[in-house]
């Protein structure tokens, strides 16, 4: 269900380039301060699809929250389009794993998307047209007047993505966004996000623990070291677009990328300890 509609009125704001320089994040924990990130540097190119993989506790979600301006870095700098990120940047939108809690349950699907338009990066001259278009793009035109509580998990996450993109961000941050839905919905969501990315052009940063998902979706995969020690590896994924759930996953180069990344993730604790 890859979407290939005509070029869009909903075009992203320019400048979806992200620079992280020696970013450290410290939490006040029960037993003193916890360093979730210990100096991470990463450059994310405009309009690329970057996946960040790593084990639990590698700090990959914390890193994404720093980019989203939801956590300020304790040390180092994070910048989007050259502007330092000190609060949620106007051109980035964050999509959480927890779709049941991130949608507005008192608003219909349509009104949730309208919420995104009302709080958009730039004012929208034709909000009604944009709502209809987003509903089409995520395949939810039939469910426009239903409430989130009446939808399946996959559908709710489609609403959350539509709402984020309706506000025309240049950067879309996806925090384990496909991890809480069943396998089939997940495959559909993956193809949908690729279709949206190819159509609307934005910088996509996806945090996932799933190496398969990272290789399938991304053009570049960053592997986090254990305990936020930094980026262990950056792997370019040179697979052709559009990608296909069956054919792409059978390609020898797909399998080679998968093998390489799995090995990197499995050894990331050793490298992290050495660093």
């Amino acid at each position: 269900m890859t979407a290939h509609p005509a070029p869009s009125r909903l075009s992203p704001a320019p400048g979806g380039e992200i620079d992280l320089t020696a970013v450290a994040v410290e939490y006040a924990g029960k037993k003193g301060n916890v360093r979730a990130l210990k100096g991470v540097s990463l450059h994310i190119r405009p309009n690329e699809f970057l996946a960040i993989v790593g084990r639990s506790g590698s700090g990959k979600s914390t890193l994404l929250r720093v980019i989203g301006g939801l956590i300020p870095p304790s040390e180092g700098t994070a910048a989007l389009g050259g502007e330092p990120i000190v609060r949620p940047p106007s051109s980035a939108r964050f999509v959480a794993q927890d779709y049941t809690q991130s949608l507005l349950p008192w608003l219909t699907v349509e009104d949730n998307i309208r919420f995104g338009i009302r709080h958009a990066v730039r004012p929208d001259a034709d909000p009604d047209g944009s709502v209809a278009r987003m509903l089409d793009l995520v395949g939810l035109a039939h469910a426009r007047s239903r409430y989130p509580g009446e939808l399946s998990g996959g559908m709710q996450q489609r609403v959350a993505i539509a709402r984020a993109l309706a506000s025309q961000p240049s950067v879309l941050l996806l925090d384990e966004a496909f991890s809480s839905v069943d396998a089939l919905s997940r495959a559909k969501l993956q193809d949908m996000i690729l279709g949206l990315w190819e159509t609307l052009r934005f910088t996509a940063v996806l945090v996932t623990h799933d190496i398969d998902e990272a290789v399938y979706l991304a053009d570049r995969v960053a592997v986090m070291q254990e305990r936020g020690a930094g980026i262990a590896a950056l792997v370019d994924v040179d697979l052709p677009h559009p990608r296909h759930q069956v054919e792409t996953r059978e390609r020898p180069d797909y399998l080679a990328y998968r093998r390489e990344l799995a090995a990197r993730v499995l050894t990331s604790d050793l490298e992290g300890a050495a660093a």
Partner: peptide
């Protein structure tokens, strides 16, 4: 829910 407050933050309310 914290995720709802994240929504408010990311949409810059």
């Amino acid at each position: 829910p914290p995720a709802l407050l994240d929504t408010a933050a990311t949409f810059r309310l």
